[in-house]
């Protein structure tokens, strides 16, 4: 059968090793678009003739909480719909908010977090969240396992540092102590690719504010200057921040973006949009103004 359906991770790795160049199929919501459009040659001559479908591997479909380390590890095959279910949605509210904006119910039933990473579109809705959370991605191949920082996995527009034959197994993100949220601008009120997006997370214990942006650079980007600035102006316990600091935070975020003009929007609007979203997210995180 040219479509192989391993039910264990070991089998999947072995099959990928045995069939170099095989296509990996997760939820199919990106790969099938390319096949339908004829942009991904398959099934003839020099094209890939083997597909490894990873949607029946139980290890990839689960998630676990490590209370000692205060982390959640999410299998690569967990769907957006599952990320919207409790208790996961309360543990990782920004990821749930991002998942709610992904495509349609049909897409959320099929599309997976691992697939989002594997495709590595700058507009991938889950990616700003994983970036803001400093996610660690666990990879597996016949050569063994390795962990990479999510930022080292995303190397360009739809380009990752995955090696041939390597699979995304799971993603570990920390459980933070503080507000977190996601925001996405699109031209429609549903089912829309991000014109620009942002995820802001706060952590009382480390006294940090972190923000990542989507659709404004070749990959998702973090905003170190804005984060450093925010650390000095917010009060995590009182949940306050001054108005002028909110404005400055927005400017610093916008300065980090490197957007382009395309058929979906303009660079100027995208820069503006991330500035506005950054301000609003910071205000949501710290609704009070210091006395």
């Amino acid at each position: 059968m040219p479509v192989l359906t391993p039910v264990s991770l070991d089998d999947a790795v072995r099959l990928l090793d045995a069939h170099p160049g095989a296509l990996v199929l997760a939820g199919g919501t990106d790969l099938m678009v390319e096949i339908n459009e004829g942009h991904r040659p398959i099934g003839s001559g020099g094209d890939p003739t083997v597909v490894v479908a990873v949607d029946r591997i139980a290890e990839l479909r689960t998630w676990t909480v490590d209370r000692g380390a205060d982390t959640v590890t999410i299998g690569a095959g967990v769907t957006y719909r599952e990320l919207l279910d409790e208790p996961l949605a309360s543990l990782l509210p920004a990821l749930a908010e991002a998942s709610r904006t992904v495509g349609s119910p049909q897409i959320r039933n099929a599309g997976t977090l691992g697939g989002n990473l594997g495709t590595c579109s700058p507009a991938g809705d889950g990616l700003p969240v994983l970036s803001a959370l400093d996610a660690v991605v666990h990879l597996v191949s016949a050569a063994g396992r390795r962990d990479v920082d999510v930022h080292d996995l995303m190397v360009g527009v739809k380009r990752t540092s995955l090696a041939p034959g390597e699979l995304i197994e799971s993603i570990t993100v920390p459980l933070l102590d503080g507000w977190q949220g996601y925001s996405k601008v699109g031209v429609r009120n549903a089912m829309v690719i991000a014109t620009a997006s942002a995820c802001l997370v706060t952590d009382r214990s480390s006294r940090t504010v972190r923000i990542a942006l989507g659709s404004v650079a070749p990959t998702v980007v973090r905003c170190p200057d804005a984060e450093a600035f925010a650390a000095g102006v917010v009060d995590h316990d009182a949940r306050t921040v001054p108005d002028d600091a909110v404005a400055r935070f927005g400017e610093l975020v916008a300065a980090t973006s490197r957007p382009i003009d395309d058929h979906r929007s303009t660079a100027a609007y995208r820069r503006h949009a991330v500035e506005v979203m950054a301000r609003r997210l910071l205000r949501r995180a710290f609704p009070g103004r210091p006395a």
């Binding site: 996601y182 925001s183 996405k184 601008v185 699109g186 429609r188 009120n189 829309v192 979203m277 609003r280």
Partner: peptide, 16 residues
């Protein structure tokens, strides 16, 4: 928030 401009994107609060 789904009723506001931006919908599930949660871009706006009512005051905006």
């Amino acid at each position: 928030p789904m009723r506001l401009p931006g919908g599930a994107g949660r871009t706006a609060d009512e005051a905006h």
